Simulated assay, not measured.
Amino acid sequence: MQQTVLVTGGSGYIACELIKQLLETGDTVHTTVRSLGNTGKVRPLKEMQAAHPGRLQLFEADLVKPGSFGAAMQGCSIVYHVASPFLMQEKITDGELQMLRPALEGVRNVLGSANEAPTVERVVLTSTIGAIFGDYSDALEMPGHVLSEAFFNTTSSLDHNPYHYSKVMAEKEAWKIAGAQDRWDLVCINPGLVLGPSLTSSSDSGSLFLLDELMRGLFFYGVPDLSFATVDVREVAAAHIAAAKLPAAKGRYIVSSAEMISFIDIAKVLRKVHRRPYLLPRMQIPNVLMRLIGPFFGLTPKFLNNHLGIRFTLDNRRSIEELGIRYRPAEQTLIDHYENWLKQKTA
C-alpha cells in the first residue's frame, strides 16, 4: 500500500538509502534537512527528486528547535525518525552538546509533532545496538554471551561512550512518549555498525569515517584487536520499511549480522579489491601496546579494557522471522562499500 511518509535527517547515510527504497516502492516521501542551502548534503536528494517527480518533498527542520517538524509531518501516516548524530569515540569532544542534546531533544520534538499530527499511525525510530549494551564487556554478562533486545544499556554516560548514552536515553524517552498516548505505535530498529554503498559523500556517519580512514591507509601500521557487529545499509533500510508496513511488527529489532567481524579481517577482505592493497594493515596491534598508545588517539583506558579482544554473538532472529530480512555476507558488503567509496573519490 502506497503511503505518504516522513523521513527525518534525509541527507544522512541510512536516511538516503531509506528514501531511495521508499520511492522505489511507490511511497510519497517528505524529508527534513537542517539546511536546504547545503548543496553537498542536499545533492543526492535533489537527484532522487528528479528521478521521481512530485514524490519527494524537502523541508528544513532542526532537531533542537521545537515545532520545526510539524510542516513536514502534515499528511504523513508513517514517521521514520532517523536523524541523530553518530561520531566515533575519538571524534567526540563534548558528549552533551554533540550527542545527547540533539538525540534527546530530537526525539521529543519529532514525537511531539507526531502527537499533534492526526494522520500519524506509526513511528519507526532508528536506535542502535549501543542502546542495548554500553561496552563489549557488558555482553559477556548476558546469558550465553548473546546480545538480545531484552536488555538496555546501563553503563554508558556522558564521559564514557557518550554516543551510546545519547541513543539509550533517546530510545527510553521515545518509549515513554509512545506509552503516554494510544493513537500511534512505536517500533525501534537497533542496527549494528552500518556499512555498504552510500548515496551521499557528505555524511558525518562514524561508520563511513572509520572505513574511510582504513581505506586511505591511516591504519597501515596495524589495527587494534577490535571486532564489529556489522550490517549492510540496504538491509537497515529494508528493516525500517518492514517495521512500518507490517501490522504485527512491534518492540525492538536487532538488525545486524549474528557474528562479529574483526578489524583485521575487514582489512583482509578489502585488500583483495583495493587498488593500493599495501595501504591496508596486515598486523594486529598487541593489546599491551594498544593500551599504551590508545590514549593518544582519544581512546581511554576504560574503553580499551572493556573492548579489546572481546567477542559476542547477536540474536537477530526477530529481524529474520518477523521482518523478513536476509543478511548478505559481510564480505560482499565490504566489497560494495569499497567500490562505492572509490567511485566517489575518483568522480
Rank of each mutant, 00 (worst) to 15 (best):
V107W: 10
I189E: 05
L270V: 05
L6Q: 10
H81A: 00
S205V: 03
Q344D: 15
Q181Y: 07
K245N: 02
T32F: 10
G134L: 01
F86T: 01
R252S: 07
R275I: 13
E90F: 05
E60W: 13
G112K: 07
M283S: 06
L226Q: 02
G106Y: 11
V146H: 07
Q98Y: 12
D182M: 02
L210K: 10
Q3L: 05
D204Y: 00
V273W: 04
C188N: 10
I132C: 04
V273M: 05
L45S: 12
R275D: 15
F133A: 11
Q89R: 00
S201Y: 05
I293P: 09
E331A: 14
A237V: 14
N38C: 04
A347L: 13
G12Q: 02
H30A: 09
F133N: 11
H274Y: 13
L56D: 14
I189T: 01
I189C: 02
A117R: 06
T119C: 02
I92N: 03
R122H: 04
K250N: 09
I129W: 01
S68E: 10
R252I: 07
M283I: 11
E47K: 11
L226M: 07
H240V: 09
S257T: 11
K41N: 06
D315P: 06
L193R: 00
A15M: 08
D336F: 12
I293D: 11
H160I: 09
E321M: 15
G196C: 12
I254L: 14
G95Q: 11
R43N: 12
Y163T: 02
L199H: 12
G37K: 12
L18D: 09
A249M: 12
F152R: 15
T300I: 02
G40W: 03
M215T: 07
L246K: 10
G294Q: 07
E259F: 07
I19W: 14
G67R: 06
H52I: 00
T333C: 15
L23F: 11
S127W: 03
F209H: 07
F59P: 00
F69E: 02
S207K: 04
L193V: 06
A174S: 05
R216A: 06
D159W: 09
G54C: 12
A170N: 03
G130F: 07
H307D: 13
E105A: 15
V79P: 01
L270S: 08
V79M: 04
L218I: 06
C188R: 04
H81V: 00
P66M: 14
E171N: 01
T128S: 14
G37M: 08
